[in-house]
Design a binder for these strands. Structure first.
Lengths: 337, 337
DNA sequence: GAAATAGTTGCACACGTGTACATAATATGA
DNA sequence: TCATATTATGTACACGTGTGCAACTATTTC
C-alpha cells in the first residue's frame, strides 16, 4: 500500500488540497507550510501516482517512438535512433515507448492523444504515410525522422542524402575515376532516389556518362549488394574502377563479390558506402562512406517535439536538414593515369 | 474531446455501469444488450481511457526494459534484446518502456509498482545488482536477462557461456591446434570468467598447457582486441596457431592486428569469436563464433514475466539457461601436421 | 398463485490527483 | 477601530473507469 497525498495531509494536519498545491509549488501556499509538507513527503517516501495525474491532467507521460518495423531494421540504425531520443528524454519524466507500425496491423485505435503526449516516427517506408496522416489528425505533436514528408503541417528531420551522394561521387571523380558504377537503393524509397540524384549530379559535373551497364538495383541489404556487384562484374568486359553503393550493407556485399572474383579493394575497384554504420571501421579495408548521424537526427527531432510540447505550438512546423559528411577511410584508391 | 462510456451510456439509454460491464464481457449482462452496446461503442469509435483504467485497476500497462546503459551497449545486443521482448509484447496492450539504469543516477524513486507492472533488466554489469536488489523489494514481477543472478527469489535467463567457450576451443583442439591463445573479457564480468573457464576446460581435456604468454586481457571492444592481439604477436617468437576471443568485437580487432602484421586469417592464425553478432557474416573471412541468441533470451525472459503477471505468482522463480551453438564459418583452419 | 430463485440493470462510491470557489486568517489603510 | 485588501487554507467536485450492493424483472418451483 503506497502512501498518497491524503496520508501526508493527515500527518501534516492539513487538507489534501494543500498538500497537492505545496508539492506542485503553487504560489498560493506559504513557504513555511510548503517546506514543512515537502519534508514530511520526503521523509515518508511519497511518490506521486502517475496514473491519477494522467487522468486528471489529461497527460499520459508517454512519448511514442514508432518505427516502420523492428524486423528488418538495421541494428545500428535502431540503436542510434533510440539513443538520440533517450538523450533528451532521460531528463524528463516521460516514458520512451517503443512500437513498430507493422505490429499494429492497420489498427491505429490504441494510438491516440490519451495514450501519447507526443509521437516520433522513425520512418523508412513510403507506406508509413498512411500512419503519419492518421496521427496528424490527433491533436498532439508529431515529428517524423529520417524521411522528408510533404504532408501539410508535418514536421520532419532528415539528412541531405542528395548532397551526401554528390560529395562521395565527386570525391571519386576528383581522384581520376571515370567508370563509376552504382548500386541503387530499394525501389520507392526517397533515400534511394535522392542518392541516385546526387550520383548523377556529380557525374554530370565531371562530364562523365552515366552507364546503365554499371548500375544495378539493390534492396539495402548485404545480399542484394553482393548480387548486384556480381551482375556488374559478369556483364562488363571493361570493369568499373569504382563503385558507389547506396548504403553500407550493400557495400559490404559488393566487397565480398569483388574479393571472390580475385580482385582487390581498393587497388582494382574502389568502393564507397552510405550511412557510416559502426562496422565500417571493423572491416578490411575500412569503408569510406558518407556519414549521416542518425542519433543527431533523432536528437534534433526530439528537441523539436519537446518544443512543441512545452509551447503547445502544434501549429508551426519545420523541415530540418542534417548535413552529411564524407568519411574518408581505406576503400578508395587514387587512380594513376 | 474523446467519447467516454458515459456518452455510450446515454446513446444506449443505460447506465455507464452497464456499458463498462458490457465492454468487459461481464457475465452479468445479457448477450442482447452486450451486442447492442458493443455496436454503439464501435460505431462511435470508443477508445478506453487507459489513464482511468490504470487508476482504477491499479495497473500501469507499462513493462520497463532497463539496460545497464545505452551508451556503450553494442547496437546488435540492444536491437536483439528489444526485438525479443517486443515479439511477445505486441500482442498485448502493454507499453514497452526503454530506460537505462545509468540515467537514473541512483534515484530509483520513479521505478515503482505504480509505474511498472513488470520489469525486465538486461544486465551487463555487476554494478546492476544494487538496482536489481531494489526492484526485488517492489511487489512486481522481475526478470533479469543475460546474467546469472544469485539474489534470493530473482528469476533470470542467461546463456551457458562456459559450455559455449568449451565447444569453441574443443573445435580448435579437434582440428589439431595446440598453441591456442585467449583474449579475455572485461574484468569482473561473469561472462568473462565463464568464457575463460570454458577455454581452460577444453584445453585441459586435450592435455594442453594454458600458456600465460598467449593470453591478453580485453574490454569487450574492438580496440582492446586489437591491442591484445598485438601484444601476443610481439611477445612470442613461436606464434599461436589459433585465437579464442571472448567476444566478436575483440575478434575483429584481433583479425585487424593479424592482417597488419602480414599474416593471414585463417591460414596462419585461426580466430574464433563469441556472440555471433550480425557483422560476423559480413567480414572476410566470415567469423566462426559461438552463437548465443540474445533475442531468444529476451523472448524467454518476457515469456516468464508474462507468466508471473498472469498468475500473480511472484513467488516461484527460475534460472533458465539458453544453449550456445558453435557457428562454423571461414575463420578457422585445419592444422596440417 | 404465491414464494423462491435466477437474471439484469442502476445507484453510489472508489481510485489519487488537481483546482474553482468559498471561507478563514492576517495584514493594510484611513 | 473598523472596513478593506491580501494571503492562506479548506470544501467540494471533477477526470473516466470498475464494482459491491440494492432493486427490479422474469422465471421457476411447489
Amino acid at each position: 500500500m503506497s502512501i498518497t497525498i491524503k496520508d501526508i495531509a493527515k500527518l501534516a494536519g492539513v487538507s489534501h488540497a494543500t498538500v497537492s498545491r505545496a508539492l506542485n509549488d503553487s504560489p498560493l501556499i506559504s513557504d513555511k507550510t510548503k517546506d514543512r509538507i515537502k519534508k514530511i513527503a520526503k521523509d515518508n517516501n511519497y511518490i506521486p501516482n502517475y496514473s491519477a495525474k494522467s487522468l486528471k491532467l489529461d497527460k499520459s507521460y508517454n512519448i511514442g517512438v514508432f518505427l516502420s518495423a523492428l524486423e528488418g531494421t538495421s541494428p545500428s540504425f535502431f540503436y542510434s535512433s533510440i539513443k538520440g531520443v533517450n538523450r533528451l528524454m532521460k531528463e524528463r519524466n516521460y516514458n520512451l515507448v517503443v512500437k513498430a507500425i507493422d505490429d499494429l496491423n492497420g489498427d491505429y485505435s490504441i494510438v491516440n492523444s490519451k495514450h501519447y503526449d507526443g509521437i516520433l516516427v522513425v520512418s523508412q517506408k513510403i507506406q508509413d504515410d498512411e500512419f503519419i496522416k492518421y496521427i496528424g489528425t490527433l491533436n498532439i505533436p508529431v515529428v517524423v525522422l529520417n524521411r522528408k514528408i510533404n504532408i501539410e503541417g508535418t514536421t520532419c528531420v532528415y539528412s541531405e542524402d542528395r548532397d551526401g551522394a554528390y560529395q562521395a561521387v565527386k570525391y571519386l571523380t576528383n581522384l581520376g575515376h571515370k567508370r563509376i558504377g552504382l548500386i541503387k537503393g530499394k525501389e520507392g524509397f526517397l533515400n534511394s532516389s535522392e542518392r541516385l540524384e546526387g550520383y548523377k549530379m556529380a557525374m554530370n559535373e565531371a562530364s562523365l556518362i552515366v552507364d546503365k551497364n554499371l548500375m544495378a538495383s539493390g534492396k539495402f541489404d548485404v545480399i542484394s549488394g553482393y548480387k548486384g556487384m556480381n551482375k556488374i562484374l559478369d556483364n562488363n568486359t571493361e570493369l568499373p574502377t569504382a563503385m558507389f553503393c547506396s548504403n553500407d550493407e550493400m557495400a559490404f556485399g559488393a566487397i565480398k563479390a569483388i574479393i571472390e572474383k580475385g580482385l582487390r579493394v581498393p587497388e582494382d575497384i574502389s568502393v564507397v558506402g552510405f550511412d557510416d554504420i559502426e562496422m565500417c571501421k571493423y572491416i578490411t579495408p575500412e569503408l569510406t562512406t558518407v556519414r549521416r548521424e542518425i542519433s543527431k537526427i533523432a536528437y534534433s527531432g526530439t528537441e523539436l517535439l519537446f518544443d512543441m510540447l512545452d509551447n503547445n505550438s502544434n501549429k508551426e512546423f519545420y523541415h530540418t536538414k542534417v548535413d552529411c559528411i564524407l568519411k574518408i577511410r581505406q576503400s578508395v584508391h587514387q587512380l594513376n593515369q
